[in-house]
Amino acid sequence: MTETRTVLARRQGAIARLTVNRPEALNALDLPMIRAMTTALDEWETDPAVTAVVLDGAGDRAFCAGGDIGVVHASAVGDPAVALTLWREEYRLDARLARYPKPVVALMDGITMGGGIGIGAHAAVRVVTERSVLAMPEVAIGLAPDVGGALLLAHAPGELGTHLALTAGRVRPADAVHCGLADHHVPADRLPALVDDLAAGAPPETTTKKYAEDPGPAPLAAARCWIDHAYRDAATVEDVLYRLDAIGEPVTREAVAAITAAAPTALKVTLRAVRNARAMTSIEACLRQDFRLCGRFLAHPDLAEGIRAAILDKDRAPRWRPGTLAEVDDADVAAFFAPIPDELDLPEPGHLLHP
């Protein structure tokens, strides 16, 4: 198998190895990669010699930094069908990985954001290392958390998930485990030995525990008091900002700055999306909501503008439309959640979210 392929699929003893191999782009997912991963999973599902799948990323900088944002930008200003096809197949892959009949061990070593959360954080066994940085940063580019991320954030302790969603906050290993985005912290230099044991037929969960180490205290656990106070039962994003401002601590001022820099429409849609997800018990329900939201953001001016400002021109000066929270009313938000003609088609197996 050549090193130029963007997905490496191969057998190693009792396991199958699936590596996203685009390190020059922080292993960002494009449609050919999504399709290659799906094909490999199809083949291994009925192979009795494969007892588990290990999913990782090439290089030591990123597991997967997300979807190919250049493709999304081009689609937002050109042909929407391109991004819709990518999201439709990506979300089906996310659901497939979450439901795969053989254990999937996701080694989320390095940057893991957006689409990386989608393929990694719904797996049966989710590993982070000291190099891991996890985030759902979509509000910063005029989008809402997708790939089932709202489901994970909605079920984080207290209001931690709402805080991460609205601030586009990044978490390190201790917070990732505390918030339910990962199960185990394994030092990066122990991953090869872990994979070797799995290849020898060792059971994934107990074997991963053997290599895991305590990631230390979770900073967000210590911040629960002010985070819960600011976000719990807040009717609007404006209410959240008012409460954060009233606390008046440096950390809450940082949160205010992060929220007010994001797209007003995306913020209000995100708050509703996360709260909707609290009543969801399956990734499929959340992905259907995600598909509706992303399709509508694709037609909204903020998405192309957010990607331009953050990724393309890097001027960090997006011109949001509308530019204030007050200009986004309840009807505007509700329109994002309305049914669409071509809904995301996913089975509903009745399985609860990741324990």
Rank of each mutant, 00 (worst) to 15 (best):
G161L: 02
T39A: 15
A273S: 11
A106R: 07
I117Y: 00
A262S: 11
C294A: 06
Q12Y: 10
L312E: 11
A62L: 07
G120I: 04
A58C: 06
A266P: 12
A124Q: 07
E3S: 15
A62K: 01
P318W: 06
P349T: 13
G148N: 05
H122P: 10
T2M: 08
G78D: 07
R22A: 14
V125K: 00
G114K: 00
A304W: 06
A304T: 10
L191V: 13
R288P: 03
T260M: 05
A212C: 00
L84I: 12
G350E: 06
K102C: 08
V77P: 13
D68M: 03
F336Y: 12
L164K: 02
G149P: 02
K268L: 09
G116R: 02
H185T: 13
W320N: 02
T162E: 14
R170W: 07
G78M: 03
I119T: 01
R296V: 05
Q289I: 04
A123E: 01
L191I: 14
E213F: 06
L312A: 08
G59T: 05
L287Q: 03
L181R: 00
G110F: 09
A317N: 14
P215T: 08
A25L: 15
G70V: 01
L198G: 01
R170H: 09
A14T: 09
A14D: 12
D345E: 15
L8T: 11
A258K: 10
L346H: 04
E327G: 11
A36R: 03
N276F: 13
R296G: 01
